[in-house]
Amino acid sequence: MSINLSAASFSYLLPKGRVIKAIQPTTLSIQPGEFVAVIGANGSGKSTLAKLLNGLLLPTNGEVLIDGHNTKDADNKVFARRRVGLVFQNPDNQLTATIVEDDVAFGPENLGLPPEEIRARVDRALKTVGMTEHKDEDPHNLSAGQRQKIAVAGILAMEPKYLVMDEPTSMLDPVGRRAILETLSELRQKSSIGIVYITHIIEETVEADRILVMTEGKIIANGPPREILTDESLMESASLYMTRPTDLARRLAKQGIPVSKDIITVEEVVKELCSLK
């Protein structure tokens, strides 16, 4: 059981025969229960990779297997969408109904679940993202951040085995962002959901099992957060930034204060300085 890319590539065809290679041949496996963060500059292929993972795009060459089912096989289309929930970058690409709870119910209804099960899932998902009090409102009257929460709830209610999220917190306030991340971490532990989490906010990746770094359609690094996030030349070459705790630790080390250069979180920097007191 896993999502497997074997030498999968993807090219966009433009008019006049132009071809843009969005994903270079890539081999990759995502296990259930894993939290894999994906970082990289704009245009590095992150969103295209996300769409390959749930069969929304089919590889130009190579294959994508979702728990053994090839996304190229038309019979597997429904299976792929159910197994792998994709939360888009922009919630407006996803919201369809004019009432919040109808929108969240849309996916589970399509799964053909009994009404009481749908009800329970919708309530649970709305509670998870903190939008229960808005359940009877029109999503179009809500703010962009609130619509983003509804989009996340809609996918959670499908209870997929894998979740692929493309910048799901970009419009949320810090507390809303933390709540989504905590929910994901619980889902991973309780239901061993595999999560692929695309973000520009490097601080959100420190608790991932591993991080994929993308540039120009290629995965140029794949490793645990501490290894990736403290590799200054790697981060620089991928146009990424070091988290503020890492930045601080390095500045202090340069000034002769003996702190580890491998720090990635606020807790760690405080602990180190505490031990020097």
Binding site: V175, R244, P245, V266, V269, V270, L273, C274
Partner: peptide, 23 residues
């Protein structure tokens, strides 16, 4: 700020914690 859903900058947070431990 936390009560309304916001937070302080990372540097402010680290500074506050260091003060708590006596810096």
């Amino acid at each position: 700020l936390n009560k309304v859903g916001l937070d302080v900058p990372v540097a402010t947070e680290i500074g506050a914690r260091l003060r708590e431990v006596g810096y």
